[in-house]
Design a protein around this nucleic acid. Structure first.
Lengths: 221, 221
DNA sequence: AAATAAATTTAGACAAATCTAAAACATAAT
DNA sequence: ATTATGTTTTAGATTTGTCTAAATTTATTT
């Protein structure tokens, strides 16, 4: 695998993520995601095409090539492994690691990341519950149900967070909800779809529909 | 501490190192050290001066400012802590970590490096025996001498090998001496200047004067 | 289908870091 | 002290990634 500039890697990663959620990606989407201008995106699309990382025809849209997807997955692998390292080994809060991982993900050594993976015990998900691609770019999709769809009375383990904004993460931290936390839905208020939930089999707290929709859990049956 | 480009950081680091060894640093030295051209160095000197990281007057030479030295020391701190991490935690060989650390040293988070320091147990020297500056940029100066001049009773870390012939390396390997190995001189026999040394705080072995003259160690004070 | 709006691309510019070739300066040698 | 040598700097160009403003293409409305 060749080396690409940090900027190119960021474009590939952004396009990959946008493809996952939207299906179709637009120049504007990318500009918005990367906090830049549409004209800059167009410029970069041409460069990515020239390097065969992207299938692109002017005005007709674009998508990652096989190679582009492969590169994107390796960046994501690095990002998530570093996040895991920061939280599990350096004891960072899970809400403060994203920014640092944005830098670390561009360190190029493949051997470094494979040794880091081994050192960490080959974790399958990062601190936010997102799956970590393996050395070949493969990863197991995790089945997740959002809190709103966890049946009342059932308990589940938090396995992922949708909205990972600092504000959301701060709220979850305050309510002591993190990855792996056991949660039981006690009551759903039809009025506003707010929930009363029991956290860690201990304290009962209330969360809004917005929060519930962005907390994913795994549960038996 | 502000953030500077990787390129600027590399210049500061190079100038710092050249100041240490030569005393006086020249444009050519820096160009040589950084594998670049003298004209490029001059360009950068002007930029570093504009940011008050360098005292510089055209044709009259230059040296780091207080601030420049401070920044350089923080880069060196990061470089050496990452090297320590790579060798001690990820089990890299001491001879393969430099290049990777050259990238890692430019990761900006101060909190990251302080937490890494803590995670590693506040090591005082890197795998090559070079001192790691603390969070304030302070570090204990180390002396480098050949084994024959390491005071009896003092411990030092192997930092270099003079004669690197295969025969010498084979001997050192057999006695389990490599770069970074801790050695304490137990006794010097006046008869032939042969030494009894304790290796890795464990086994005591004997080496000839010829060997001792070609093994260099660094030690505090 | 024509007009309007929105998205996308081009054209031309800029900053950072580098380069080559030529000019300016300093040093050493006769 | 003048010349020869070597070092350092300037001038002008290049590359990468970005920008603004204008032009072009596509989509939406009426």
């Amino acid at each position: 695998m060749q080396k690409y500039s940090s900027s190119k890697e960021n474009y590939l990663k952004a396009i990959f993520h946008l493809q996952k959620s939207d299906g179709v990606v637009t120049t504007n989407d990318v500009a918005n995601e990367l906090q830049t201008r549409p004209a800059s995106v167009t410029d970069m699309l041409k460069k990515l095409k020239a390097q065969k990382l992207l299938i692109y025809e002017r005005y007709k849209g674009f998508k990652l090539s096989q190679e582009g997807r492969k590169v994107a997955l390796q960046i994501i692998r690095k990002h998530r492994l570093w996040e895991y390292f920061l939280v599990e080994k350096l004891e960072f809060g899970w809400d403060e690691v994203h920014e640092i991982a944005e830098e670390l993900e561009h360190i190029s050594s493949k051997k470094l990341i494979d040794k880091l993976d081994e050192f960490l015990g080959f974790p399958k998900t990062d601190p936010h519950g997102d799956p970590i691609p393996d050395s070949q770019g493969k990863f197991t999709l995790v089945k997740q149900v959002d809190l709103l769809h966890l049946p009342v009375g059932k308990s589940g383990d938090v396995s992922g967070i949708g909205d990972q904004s600092p504000e959301m993460l701060e709220l979850l931290k305050h309510k002591q909800i993190s990855l792996g936390t056991r949660i039981e839905v006690k009551k759903v208020f039809a009025f506003d779809n707010s929930l009363e939930i029991k956290v860690r089999n201990q304290n009962v707290v209330t969360v809004s529909e917005h929060v519930a929709k962005n907390v994913f859990v795994k549960y038996d049956e």
